[in-house]
């Protein structure tokens, strides 16, 4: 692919802290290489802002390899930008043309309050995982990896669900700000394996209860989450979660 440089107009959400009212600000960046990643382009913008004595734009990032789930920008109406199955850090500037105006917003959901600029607080996801996203393991020597036979299809489905990096793009894309795709991935990857069996019922009940407490909306099966997910988590996990919940709540002793 041909390399080219571009000049861009950026319309970026700026917000001092959780309590203050934010607003969009326009910036111009020049000579951006088509080989840069979107976050590198933001690094250029921030260098420029620091040079001009302005506060740099705060944004989340960590591995910049598409596997940590930290980056979280809503770019031109789509979480993680225009490419499919992709994170913002892996979005390259060749996705844009010279002279483009790019609108960058933070994830919007009350359960993800803005901390500053494009950084949102996603600890609600951590609390959902703490409520049940674990398994019990006996202490002592590690068990041989192949000691327990596991159906291949189930193992594959479990691994596919375990791909979730917890970035929150599903919540950002959902019209109801529902965390169901995230939750369903976390419940499914354990429910499909024998290791997840002991806490199977309490897990789904407790994790759904925590999700509700955090103020996420309810799922209406529109499919927007699946389409935007950088790890292509299937919406069929949500149906599996519903089944897990129905069975767990109907068979609960108390």
């Amino acid at each position: 692919m041909e390399h080219y440089n571009m000049n861009l107009n950026l319309k970026v959400w700026r917000q001092k802290n959780t309590k203050s009212k934010g607003e969009f600000k326009m910036y111009r960046v020049e000579n951006i290489s088509s080989e840069m990643s979107f976050l590198e382009m933001f690094d250029v913008l921030n260098e420029q802002l620091i040079h001009e004595g302005e506060e740099p734009v705060a944004f989340d990032h960590d591995c910049r390899e598409g596997i940590c789930g930290m980056c979280s920008m809503y770019i031109n109406g789509k979480p993680h930008g225009p490419w499919q199955a992709n994170t913002t850090c892996q979005l390259h500037m060749r996705a844009f043309k010279d002279g483009d105006t790019i609108v960058v917003e933070p994830w919007r959901a009350n359960a993800f309050p803005v901390i500053k600029d494009l950084v949102v607080d996603r600890t609600s996801f951590d609390r959902i995982i703490q409520a049940g996203g674990y398994i019990s393991v006996n202490t002592g020597n590690a068990v041989d990896g192949n000691a327990l036979p596991i159906n291949k299809d189930k193992a594959d489905a479990s691994f596919a669900a375990a791909m979730c990096i917890g970035c929150g793009a599903c919540v950002a894309a959902c019209k109801n700000s529902s965390a169901m795709l995230f939750l369903s991935a976390k419940v499914s990857h354990l429910a499909l394996l024998p290791q997840g069996e002991p806490e199977r019922h309490s897990r789904v009940i407790n994790m759904v209860a925590q999700m509700d407490k955090e103020g996420f909306g309810s799922c209406t099966n529109t499919g927007a989450c699946e389409a935007t997910c950088p790890k292509e988590i299937s919406i069929s996990n949500i149906a599996r979660l519903n089944q897990e919940y129905l069975v767990a709540s109907l068979t609960a002793e108390k």
Binding site: N76, K78, E105, K175, G223, A224, C225, E226, T228
Partner: peptide, 9 residues
Amino acid sequence: AVSYGNAGS
């Protein structure tokens, strides 16, 4: 400011 639109739904 920019709505998500029809992708996937």
